[in-house]
């Protein structure tokens, strides 16, 4: 059984906050995990392989 708390209607600022957090998270993944600049690539190399990102 799922407990239903009072469904807080999302305000405009809530939606903006959620959207901003999503964009922020995706940006981190793109830069740390996928950007091909060589210095970034070399520094993040082992992490990218272990995370299963396409690396090179």
């Amino acid at each position: 059984m799922t407990t239903i708390t009072q469904a807080v209607p999302a305000t405009r600022t809530d939606i903006i906050a959620i959207f901003a957090a999503l964009c922020f998270g995706i940006a981190i993944i793109v830069v740390a995990g996928h950007a091909q600049a060589s210095s970034l690539h070399d520094a993040a190399h082992d992490t990218r392989h272990a995370a299963g990102f396409p690396c090179h």
Binding site: T5, P9, A10, L22, F24, G25, I28, A32, A44, A51
Partner: peptide
């Protein structure tokens, strides 16, 4: 970089939790 990547995942995950929370 691993910590950074997990922070990135975390932002997306918590944002989606906030969406679910908003739906009750």
């Amino acid at each position: 970089f691993t910590i950074l990547v997990y922070c990135g995942y975390s932002f997306i995950l918590v944002a989606l939790m906030a969406v679910a929370n908003g739906k009750g």
